[in-house]
Design a protein around this nucleic acid. Sequence first.
DNA 1: GAAATATGCAACTTAATGGTTGCAAATATA
DNA 2: TATATTTGCAACCATTAAGTTGCATATTTC
Lengths: 108, 108
Amino acid sequence: MKGDIFQAIADPTRRAILVLIAAQSMTPNALAEHFDTSRQAVSKHIKVLADCELLTQDKVGREIHYYFNPVKMKEFDHWLTQFKKHWEDRFNQLDQLLINLNSNSDEN
Amino acid sequence: MKGDIFQAIADPTRRAILVLIAAQSMTPNALAEHFDTSRQAVSKHIKVLADCELLTQDKVGREIHYYFNPVKMKEFDHWLTQFKKHWEDRFNQLDQLLINLNSNSDEN
DNA sequence: GAAATATGCAACTTAATGGTTGCAAATATA
DNA sequence: TATATTTGCAACCATTAAGTTGCATATTTC
């Protein structure tokens, strides 16, 4: 499941990382200061996010700046949108069914 | 992380279950026919989804009908919406910055 | 009442995940 | 050049997750 965006977002620490980096690009060290875990643990989370392209990197000297990549987030958004759409279709069908039932009862 | 909706949706089999059940309520047996795994494996996935209230159940005799519960899905939707909103704010700030830069260059 | 069916629960195995520590490579600084 | 800093990688450990098999319970059917 490597590179799976759903898997990446499942972890609460990684979601927090996404929110932080979406607000402002950051280095792993700067990022790690926001968490109680070790730098390496944060680094591993970054790797997971970078593997599925939710983060992009820009090397500046010995520092690496990580940026949020909204493109891949849309993949995630897409699933949810499709799901909602599909469910709403069914909801509309249910509405229609209720309308038809009412019409029939009017005829009787 | 029990009851966490992000965790529940992370698994591809569970996402497939959600799509199937959102289209039509189903019993565990009927659902298991759609997958290559054992009934019990599917049943465990159902349990995960039911634990975080993405599915509700209705016992009819010895059968249990599982229904999709859209309410909890909104919790998930909410996170993404907030995230997008937050990111769009920043995007707008970037737009504003570019406008200001253009204004300055016009003055020179 | 006996057999069949639908389901959940428990035990177990294997694979994946998140965490730690130690170390090596690259770059900046003194 | 020697030292400090930033980072990634590898090895290891503990926990969780997903799957299987077997069994118990409830309900329907014969």
